[in-house]
Design a protein around this nucleic acid. Structure first.
Length: 656
DNA sequence: ATACGATTTTTTTTT
DNA sequence: AAAATCGTAT
């Protein structure tokens, strides 16, 4: 038995022991939110609740897994049958079962970002919108807009006015494109990320019998990071939790940083209106940071007008004051951080206790170079996602064709890899192949070569050979690992990698990892679908040895929920954080300040805010940067004052 | 008309 | 690092 009273503080204990929901827990940064959630799940199991009746919605799949494994070691009970993961994952599981109810095939596939971008591109060209002449937005922007319409339930005009005012002139064309895109997805029986949520809500709203069954199954619903839930996700929860007895949501409105995905902190603010008899608990004791760090963070977040009043109290002993470091330029900034990391390492600090955070991926460039130069190992959690890399997508295209030969996108990817086959040639080939029931059979048939122009034949022949090698595998051996093996060793993919990439060896390694990873799944179809829903952080698990001593480089967004002893926030310049273009959006500055707050509250012992004074940009030369307004606005004390919230160091080139 | 390759540009954050 | 762009070759 767990001694809850001993292991939790009073606030946490109350939440864990509370008999019935609905429950709203307002948990400040570092207040033991995850701990509370974990213990509550453990407590439910101890009380004899069937694990199958628990639904745990988290922000990443990894968060769910690590929470559940902690529950297991805590309570010594099995958690495998608990449904846990992201909303997208949960929606996906539900939709697999009931897809036919909303007019989709049971084997619908999931479009990842690249797939949906491509599909939008074909929509644009089919509508003959003159993209270049009229500076019509790119497909990824259109994709974002369509996503926002869905996720915020606003009209196209509202979305454009709030976020893309400069695109209002294109309303009609964007609308046409969106409609065509939606129609095509339905015809192809595919869903993009947003459709997973939207269709799940649609399913529940239109099919009371399904909702009844599911809400009967999930008697205990726990939602983490409720501040980053959007309207659709909130409604899915509302429908599933119709018994209301055991709904618990946890969040911190001050840490809501995903409004670009339709998230709204208003979900938290309005929770008690939706559930008038809900009980509200606050976790206001911060275990993580020194009072100095917390003081700075509080000063900053208090500048926001829209927030739930909270007073976070520091529990830890006094430590060192945060430091604002002004470096001469970007290189100097990287140099300072790297040097400081070396000093810390020499004094016994573990590298895994140090993180460098930034607002945008490209902010990490100089930092990476400097760390490489000094041989400091680091783990970077940003940039393109593992499964989005070209070689992963190439290989999985073969698998996607095996699963669904009528899927145009993987065919297009594979065939255009070969010389003399571009867009136009593929279009011809596809219009021939797609007429038949099974394009794969057509592709392999004797007659097929007749329609191929002489120039393209060699490539097509090679691709056919690859395919045939795969099909030689007995059906039960057509699993990811074997397919990868065949493509590398019998097909031409290894030589393709060698010809095209200087880092082919590490790409090949990725593929081996991918094969190992695929063993988690029952079949290829599950594997492919879940791959699209994986996050960077999910993927890291199992691919790399995590124990390794490494400094972490991460965007602030991906640092959510994590903590380190030493945190360096780089590029604290106005225009970088807050990012210049976000200020044009509604409530843009407040969201950026929340982001800043999230970054500050990741630090346990020491926090450095680094700001380069000069930045070099092509075309413009040197640009003078000034410190972030978020730093300047809390500079309420004079430089001599002992109580000022941060120290200032200036690193200019005078003495080195 | 089509494909290719050398070039410039991209970029906020993510399921 | 990958996509978009543009000039050139076929």
């Amino acid at each position: 038995m767990i001694d809850y009273e001993k292991e939790l503080n009073h606030e946490q204990y109350q939440v864990v022991m509370e008999e019935k929901g609905p429950l709203l827990v307002l948990a400040g940064a570092g207040s033991g939110k995850t701990r509370t959630l974990t213990y509550r799940v453990a407590r439910l199991l101890e009380c004899g609740v069937n694990p199958e009746s628990i639904l745990l919605a988290t922000f990443t799949n990894k968060a769910a897994r690590s929470m559940l494994s902690r529950v297991e070691s805590l309570a010594g009970l099995h958690t495998r049958t608990i449904t846990g993961g992201t909303f997208h994952h949960i929606a996906h599981v539900i939709l697999r079962k009931y897809a036919t109810r909303i007019g989709y095939q049971r084997n619908f596939s999931i479009l990842d970002r690249e797939d949906s971008r491509q599909l939008i591109n074909t929509c644009i060209s089919e509508l003959r919108i003159e993209q270049k002449l009229k500076k019509f937005p790119k497909s990824n922007i259109i994709g974002d807009i369509i996503g926002l319409i869905l996720n915020t339930q606003n009209s196209l005009e509202d979305v454009l006015a709030g976020r893309y005012p400069y695109l209002l002139d294109y309303t009609d064309d964007i609308n046409q494109t969106a409609l065509l895109y939606i129609r095509k997805k339905k015809e192809m029986s595919v869903m993009d990320f947003d459709d997973l949520l939207y269709n799940c809500r649609l399913l529940l709203a239109d099919n009371p019998d399904v909702t009844n069954i599911l809400s009967g199954v999930f008697k205990h619903i726990l939602v983490d990071e409720y501040q980053d839930v959007n309207i659709i996700q909130a409604e899915i929860i509302d429908m599933l939790a119709c018994s209301q007895e055991n709904l618990m949501v946890v969040g911190d409105d001050s840490q809501s940083i995903y409004s670009f995905r339709g998230a709204s902190y208003e979900n938290i603010i309005n929770f008690h209106k939706k559930y008038p008899d809900c009980k509200i608990y606050k976790l206001e004791i911060n275990y993580r940071s020194t009072p100095e760090i917390l003081h700075l963070a509080n000063l900053s977040i208090n500048k926001n007008e829209n927030r739930y009043p909270k007073k976070l109290k520091a529990l830890r002993e006094s430590g060192t004051r945060p430091v604002a470091v002004y470096a001469e330029n970007v290189l100097k900034q990287a140099d300072f951080v790297a040097q400081r990391i070396e000093e810390l390492y020499r004094s016994g600090v573990e590298l895994s206790q140090i993180a460098v955070l930034y607002r945008a991926h490209y902010h990490s460039m100089e930092m990476q170079m400097e760390l490489v130069r000094r041989n400091i190992p680091f783990d970077i959690r940003s940039g393109i996602r593992f499964y989005e890399q070209a070689h992963i997508k190439d290989i999985t295209s073969y698998m996607r064709i095996l699963v669904n030969p009528k899927d145009e996108l993987p065919w297009s990817r594979l065939l255009t890899m070969y010389p003399k086959i571009g867009k136009a040639t593929f279009k011809k080939i596809w219009s021939y192949m797609s007429q038949k029931d099974n394009p794969l059979e057509v592709f392999l048939s004797q007659e097929f070569m007749n329609i191929i122009t002489a120039a393209a034949r060699a490539g097509i022949e090679q691709c056919r050979q690859n395919m045939q090698e795969i099909l030689k595998l007995p059906t039960e051996e057509r699993i990811a690992e074997k397919v990868i093996h065949v493509l590398l060793n019998k097909g031409d993919y290894r030589s393709y990698l060698q010809r095209n990439y200087s880092d082919y060896a590490s790409r090949e390694e990725d593929l081996i990892h991918l094969a190992a990873f695929s063993y988690r799944f029952n079949n290829m179809e599950d594997f492919l679908n879940e791959l699209a829903l994986l996050t960077n952080m999910d993927a890291g698990e199992g691919f790399e040895d995590e124990q390794d001593e490494k400094v972490v480089l991460s965007t602030i967004h991906q640092a959510k929920g994590l903590e380190w002893s030493y945190v360096f926030l780089i590029w604290c310049a106005d225009g970088m954080i807050p990012l210049h273009r976000t200020l044009k959006e509604r409530d843009g500055e407040e969201e950026e300040r929340r982001l800043f707050y999230v970054a500050l509250t990741r630090a346990q012992d020491q926090l450095y805010l680094c700001c380069p004074a000069l930045d070099y940009r092509r075309g413009e030369g040197n640009i003078v940067l000034s410190a972030s307004r978020f730093i300047k606005e809390i500079e309420t004390f004079s430089a001599e004052d002992d109580k000022r919230p941060y120290e200032q160091w200036t690193l200019y080139n005078d003495y080195q």
